[in-house]
């Protein structure tokens, strides 16, 4: 078997090698996910357990953050609109901002921190303590049991959490608008739904699915490939968060371009 001789290569060349080897490894990991996800047996019990861990247990943090985002964004937007005497546009402005961008983005970033790091650390710790090897020697497919279940759970749960965040953020905004502009709940939500279109909701849903998949697969990949004992587990958790956040921002940017192209076509 031919081996790459790292010793004689300059540093930049080694880094380029490492980058492409890492890219190929990540690509084959994602490919393996799609090969395994539709193949029986399906680990429904474990998927439901993961959905509970990822979805339900994230609710307190997501609720608090969504509510504060709604209040803060409303408060920050009011002075600009009031200069034009347009504070009545606040519900429409907030709904567009929350549904199109802030809801999915805030939820995904929080989930990347909370869920992504926990997946990376959990699988990384299983890797370094040979629990994954123990599954393999017992003829159990660890990829299916650990990676597929967690990635499916994040892909399903993040869109639900995003919808929940949207609702909580709009409620936060309503409380603020109600206190300052004396707008009723029904009026507020009529304006909210008038401002958003099917494309906004649909693109938000698709984007959330992609964010969820990204958080799950990155956490699993980093954990599954961790090494060097407990130090490796820490690194896996940390790089799960960093990599997932980086990819989420890139995906957000791409989604924005695609949706705008459709909207203004």
């Amino acid at each position: 078997m031919s081996k790459i001789n790292h010793e004689k290569k300059p540093l930049i060349s080694k880094k380029i090698d490492r980058f492409f080897i890492g890219l190929a490894s990540a690509f084959s990991f994602v490919k393996m996910f799609f090969q395994e996800v539709f193949k029986p047996p399906f680990e429904f019990k474990e998927i439901i357990r993961q959905c509970y861990e990822i979805g339900y247990r994230s609710l307190p943090l997501i609720s608090l953050t969504g509510f504060i985002v709604g209040i803060v964004f409303t408060n920050q937007s009011r002075p600009s609109l009031s200069e034009f005497g347009a504070t009545s546009w606040l519900p429409a402005l907030i709904s567009i901002a929350v549904v199109r961008a802030m809801g999915p983005l805030v939820t995904a970033l929080i989930a990347a921190g909370k869920v992504g790091s926990s997946i990376g650390a959990e699988i990384g710790s299983m890797k370094v303590t040979e629990q994954i090897d123990a599954m393999e020697v017992s003829a159990i497919n660890p990829f299916k049991y650990l990676v597929v279940t967690r990635t499916v759970a994040t892909t399903l749960m993040i869109p639900i959490l995003v919808m929940y965040t949207d609702f909580v953020a709009l409620m936060g905004s309503f409380i603020n608008v109600n206190q300052n502009e004396l707008v009723s709940l029904s009026t507020f939500f009529v304006q909210v739904f008038e401002a958003i279109s099917f494309l906004d909701l649909f693109s938000s849903l698709i984007k959330s699915l992609v964010f969820g998949f990204t958080i799950g697969i990155v956490g699993c990949y980093k954990g599954y490939n961790s090494s060097k004992g407990t130090e490796g587990v820490g690194k896996a958790a940390n790089s799960s968060v960093v990599m997932a956040m980086f990819l989420i921002f890139i995906e957000e940017l791409l989604a924005l371009q695609i949706v705008n192209a459709i909207r203004y076509a």
Binding site: T129, E130, D133, A134, S138, I140
Partner: peptide
Amino acid sequence: RLKIGFSFQHSALYDSMTVKENLEFPLTRN
């Protein structure tokens, strides 16, 4: 592999499962 038992140096017990679940896991999967 089902005919070979492997006892790991650090036991490699699944730390999110009880002892009973650890034993059941390979049995019910196979």
